[in-house]
Design a protein around this nucleic acid. Structure first.
Lengths: 369, 369
DNA sequence: GCCAAAATGATTGACGTCTATCAATTCCAT
DNA sequence: ATGGAATTGATAGACGTCAATCATTTTGGC
């Protein structure tokens, strides 16, 4: 009735414990015939190695690295903040977190970081994907070396990464289009897409999804040419200002990258009027929160970085533990209006929960006499 | 540099290992002065008991029970399905799941189930809350007996439950109102709320949130009296049919409970016309999926039962492990249009991930020779 | 049939906690 | 002071795995 141990496997396979151990831990030096018998016994018994016992025996510590772009991008700053907040808690679970900096949108420097990490490989690496053969090659080397590699936020489907943790960006773009269409009700309009860089897969996919639904279901809405703002607030601000100054009739803005504080500034001119365009942006940050609250933005599509980090960690741990892989589903983004803003994630006061379970409850055996 | 063990604590407190053990496991028979010294040493060293080692030593199996309402309610059927799907995987992690049936909206039978469970108490219980003093009393007895109790879907804030796992229903109602308002653009309208029962806290809260935002931001939308459909499709269908037959001008329907297949049938009469009201419902089920896809519903607010189950399990495990309680944040509901429907959760084919990590990768020590 | 190389078996000591038992000490009321 | 109770200490085995060592057997080439 209880779970089979490796000793059971060895017995069933008719080999010694030592041989079974050599097979499951890939130590080599086992004849094929024997190894197959062990594998068969594992399958027959449904043996799953007891990770707790394994970790206990070798005093294992999980070492995970998050490679995060530098710069003033509010989303990545938020990501760093959350990582900093969960790190102490994770240490209790024998997990060490490290953040490696990398220049944004920069394949060569990402490759350099990955190559450096390969020298003393951690157990897992989470990185923001960049479409580039060199990065893919570095990833392949890491996975070959037994490192769990997970792409975060933006995927690299053609690489050897074990899993992608993030939202379905195409679907997010379609959702934005649907909301934009809803808000235009039955009237016509002209919509401006603002993005960071077409070289980023996530931005490309969002734009494609947005376009597809607008074209399909909302023919009365015209699409202006997209603006590439490199995720930099001042560039976005200038560009939007210029359009307004030229008197362009803009009924909606879909900002699918970062740099939204610039957008908020550019929209200040509509304060108090009812002529502000419908504004849909990505990522809940202090700035976008504020703009939502004050009624300057309408919708925020948030990829829930906290959930992403949790899933990335769980995935890396699962791969490191060599457990049968659970299917990874995309993160479901939160669609946020001024009415359903969640608490900021840094308001995580452990004791605020008001409960402390660190001493045994009065269970079967009595307390004091 | 490594984590302190209980032996370290004992040494620091100047007591024997046995005494320290008696303190952390509440076995009793320790003089106050000594116990305090042990507790002080624990605090000084930041000792956290090694759960893996503890579970290993006693061959521990977590026993968790989900108490789920019976009936044809599609949401709860879905919840049961997901529980069935995760159960085998959890068994690998020494966790046993059981489902207990209970009549819906029925406090006495919930109390009976809880009392029965108390006879051989599991490690954790997740239940759908019902506001009733008797239920609260039963919950208090369970928590006093050391059982981790979590409310699911609908909370009981005044009970002794350890945590609530579910969405912020008030916020969800506000979100529905915002979407309804958006879809009404600047035109007037009349909106019908359909709910299961005002005795259910979650339904009450959604309705309150919905009302508040409509009143505050959309004065041009009139609110019809709400209909209580007991979550039963045929009742909902009849009631809505009757209203339409009477020629009521209805521009929007907010269905905040179950029974949406009845609603979909009642809306069939608008097929092909553009006079269908705006329809916002809760919970993604096969029926609401279909209605979204065919364009009969506009928005589904889904409380993501899979995420709820995962969080409930994690919470119960954490409480059972007597770890410092992490703050529990509400589940963020998914807002779903026809454009961003996620894969059904039962499409979870473990092997579909295409990866199997059950054998050691070629790590530090070489493979075959 | 011999030798080296390869494969296999047997065994042991961690890892940190829990449970249990038994011996030794302290405390307190009389 | 004495006896009984309460408290404390010491220790050992179990849990399942990993890493390591050493002894033994089998294999393959000649």
């Amino acid at each position: 009735m209880k779970a089979p141990t490796l000793a059971d496997v060895a017995r069933r396979a008719g080999v010694s414990y030592a041989t079974a151990d050599r097979v499951v831990n890939a130590r080599g030096g086992v004849a094929d015939a024997r190894a197959d018998r062990v594998r068969q016994a594992i399958a027959d018994l449904g043996y799953v190695r007891n990770v707790a016992a394994a970790n206990l025996s070798q005093g294992r510590v999980y070492r995970f690295v998050f490679v995060i772009p530098t710069g003033t991008n509010a989303f990545f700053l938020h990501l760093r903040m959350i990582l900093g907040a969960v790190a102490p808690r994770l240490r209790l679970e024998r997990t060490e977190l490290r953040i490696e900096d990398v220049a944004a949108f920069d394949a060569p420097s990402l490759v350099a970081v990955l190559r450096a990490l390969a020298l003393s490989p951690p157990d897992g690496i989470a990185l923001v994907g960049i479409d580039s053969p060199e990065v893919a090659a570095a990833v392949a080397d890491l996975t070959a070396a037994g490192v769990a590699v997970v792409t975060l936020v933006s995927d690299m489907p053609d690489s050897a990464r074990h899993a992608y943790v993030g939202i379905d960006n195409c679907s997010a773009g379609r959702t934005a289009a649907r909301l934009m269409g809803l808000a235009h009700a039955r009237g016509p309009g002209r919509v401006l897409p603002v993005l960071g860089s077409l070289s980023a897969r996530d931005h490309r996919e969002r734009l494609a999804g947005f376009r597809a639904i607008l074209a399909q279901d909302f023919p009365q809405i015209a699409l202006l040419p997209e603006f590439e703002g490199r995720d930099r607030a001042e560039l976005v601000e200038q560009a939007v200002e210029r359009l307004f100054d030229r008197g362009e009739a803009i009924s909606g803005i879909y900002s699918l990258g970062a740099g939204n504080s610039g957008l908020a500034r550019a929209l200040a001119r509509f304060e108090g009027t009812d002529r502000r365009p419908v504004v849909i942006v990505h990522e809940l940050t202090p700035r976008t929160r504020e703009a939502l609250g004050s009624g300057n933005f309408d919708v925020v599509i948030d990829q829930r970085p906290g959930a992403e980090i949790a899933l990335a960690l769980a995935t890396m741990r699962q791969i490191s533990d060599r457990l049968p892989a659970a299917p990874i589903r995309p993160i479901i983004p939160a669609i946020i209006f001024q009415d359903n803003m969640p608490e900021p994630e840094d308001s995580a006061l452990p004791e605020a929960a008001g409960l402390d379970h660190t001493t045994a409850p009065p269970g079967r055996q009595g307390g004091l006499t």
